[in-house]
């Protein structure tokens, strides 16, 4: 499902060169839940952005669902991402001036679906994420937990095969984090591949996690 082969990623400026990832190779099977652990700056988010095709490696190959996403030009990787990957960001990245419903609808707009199909999908994910009662509320008026649920609903609305979550519980309290973990468990049962980058210890001993990968200074240490 997801294969990284000898991936290096360097960020270069005139003043310095930062090796964000060094010789990373990993293999994730379809339907697995993989945890990426490590301190801030260890390279977790970089791996996720490479898998999502948001950035390209300096060297090495990234293959997702049989597609060499690292070799795709931006319009093709955007299309691939839209069809196959749902991304949950640490800071949610919702549009504060749009309603919950409209934020969730955004990824569907380029799909040219009929209004009925679109509405059906939006209602389904809003129910799944228990946010239906706030459908017409503006996102800037929501609590952190509610915003997180909207972000999850938006990631799910395109029915992706892969969900990528980058520090999803960093801004949530313990109770809301538990709820998030439950949602992830439900998705795993549905066969969705999960990649979660976190340093939240609540995730570390979960029974549904298949692989835990620890990173330190851009190197896999376990």
């Amino acid at each position: 499902m997801i294969v990284l082969k000898n991936v290096y990623k360097c960020y270069e400026t005139e003043a310095q060169r930062i090796d964000a990832l060094r010789d990373i190779s990993l293999h994730v099977k379809a339907g697995e839940c993989v945890l990426l652990k490590g301190a801030s700056g260890s390279g977790k988010s970089t791996i996720l952005s490479l898998i999502a095709g948001l950035s390209k490696p300096t060297t090495g190959d990234v293959v997702v669902d049989g597609k060499r996403i690292s070799k795709l030009m931006e319009p093709f990787s955007a299309h691939f991402r839209r069809e196959n990957i749902g991304f949950i960001f640490q800071r949610y990245h919702l549009i504060p001036t749009l309603s919950v419903r409209d934020n969730i609808a955004l990824p569907l707009i380029p799909e040219n679906l009929t209004a009925q199909v679109m509405e059906k999908r939006i209602q389904e994910v809003m129910q799944l994420c228990a946010i239906s009662h706030k459908a017409s509320a503006l996102c800037r008026h929501l609590s952190g937990g509610e915003q997180q649920r909207v972000a999850i609903a938006r990631a799910l609305v395109n029915e992706p095969k892969i969900i990528i979550a980058d520090e999803p519980t960093a801004n949530l309290d313990a109770v809301l984090s538990e709820q998030f973990i439950e949602t992830m468990h439900d998705l795993k049962k549905r066969g969705v591949t999960l990649l979660i980058a976190t340093h939240d210890s609540q995730f570390f001993n979960l029974p549904f996690v298949d692989q835990q990968i620890e990173l330190k200074n851009g190197v896999m240490i376990s």
């Binding site: 082969k5 000898n6 490696p57 300096t58 060297t59 190959d61 690292s70 070799k71 030009m73």
Partner: peptide, 17 residues
Amino acid sequence: DRDATSLLQYRLEKESY
């Protein structure tokens, strides 16, 4: 070299844009 995953090839891909 379309299939290469080297530093040069990734640079060339950016430069082609």
